[in-house]
Design a binder for these strands. Structure first.
Length: 269
DNA sequence: CATTGTCCCTGGAAGC
DNA sequence: TGCTTCCAGGGACAAT
């Protein structure tokens, strides 16, 4: 599931490969990913455009174009972007073709993925919270963001308007690192716990970027490679397995239809 | 505003 | 073997 480390990996690979290329054609076999725009307008406004830059905001990929507009892509659960795939991909939704003959293929089994073409990026990413790997994200700021909140810390970490880019897997991993139970009220965290959590978030995300993300489910890099970050997961998606620290069986709780995996001994409630 | 619940979507795994 | 149920979960939106 693409979260910040996966989208960052995609951004880096695309930045190295598609900047300077020009769209020659688009094949849209499923228009559902296109939001706020028709297939016809989407094609018309993209064909002929040159790619200037590739950026990222939270889990959104920003493909900036020569005319000042931005193609924004969110992969949601099962979306993937593949550069010149060798095989025909089964769940191809949109194929972007370049004047040099290359292709960027968007695949998405579950069809949750979203694409926008906007003049102002803020129309899509304007409400996102802090970038957790930016300099502005400090222990003090995190403490302020969590203060007085009554929702479980897990729910607040997943709220993209608070911190942008953390998803279910990395939230579980960061909470395990910081030894904080996912159902603790966010506002009740002690100062040392907030500090540990801040460090844990940054460590977990940074390490995962170094491993090209986690290939749980359908995630692949644009190059076709798989990420290896999931081999380092200690609790995420490991319900029923043993905690690597204390051997207690890892539990699962549900909040807002999302599973949280945690060690009941290492993460006290 | 803060918070919670529902829905979207589909294939693969697990259970009977 | 074949059917049913569960599971994965980001974000839009509605309700409280």
């Amino acid at each position: 599931m693409p979260e910040l480390p996966e989208v960052e990996t995609i951004k880096q690979q695309l930045a190295a490969c598609i900047v300077g290329k020009q769209f020659s054609d688009l094949a849209i076999s499923d228009g559902k990913p296109l939001r706020r725009i028709s297939s016809g307008n989407f094609r018309k406004r993209l064909i002929g455009q040159e790619i200037k830059e590739v950026g990222r905001s939270g889990k959104y990929l920003l493909v900036r174009l020569a005319n000042g507009s931005t193609l924004i892509i969110h992969l949601r659960m099962t979306g993937a972007l593949l550069l010149n795939p060798k095989n025909t991909e089964r769940f191809t939704r949109v194929t972007f073709k370049f004047t040099d003959g290359g292709e960027l293929v968007f695949t998405d089994v579950r069809r949750f993925g979203a694409m926008y073409l906007v003049k102002d990026e803020k129309d899509v990413v304007g409400k996102l919270g802090l970038e957790p790997l930016s300099d502005e994200f400090t222990p003090g700021i995190l403490a302020k963001l969590l203060a007085k909140r009554k929702a479980p810390i897990k729910a607040v970490l997943l709220d993209q308007t608070v911190i942008a880019g953390i998803g279910n897997m990395y939230a579980d991993e960061a909470l395990f690192s910081a030894r904080v139970h996912p159902m603790r009220k966010a506002g009740d965290l002690l100062p040392f716990e907030t500090k540990n959590l801040h460090k844990a978030i940054r460590d977990v995300l940074t390490k995962a970027i170094g491993k090209k993300g986690a290939s749980i489910s359908t995630y692949k890099c644009p190059s076709g490679e798989l990420g290896t970050a999931h081999f380092d997961f200690r609790v995420a998606h490991r319900g029923g397995e043993k905690c690597p620290k204390c051997k207690t069986v890892i539990q699962r709780v549900k909040t807002r239809n999302r599973s949280s995996y945690y060690c009941p001994k290492c993460q006290k409630d």
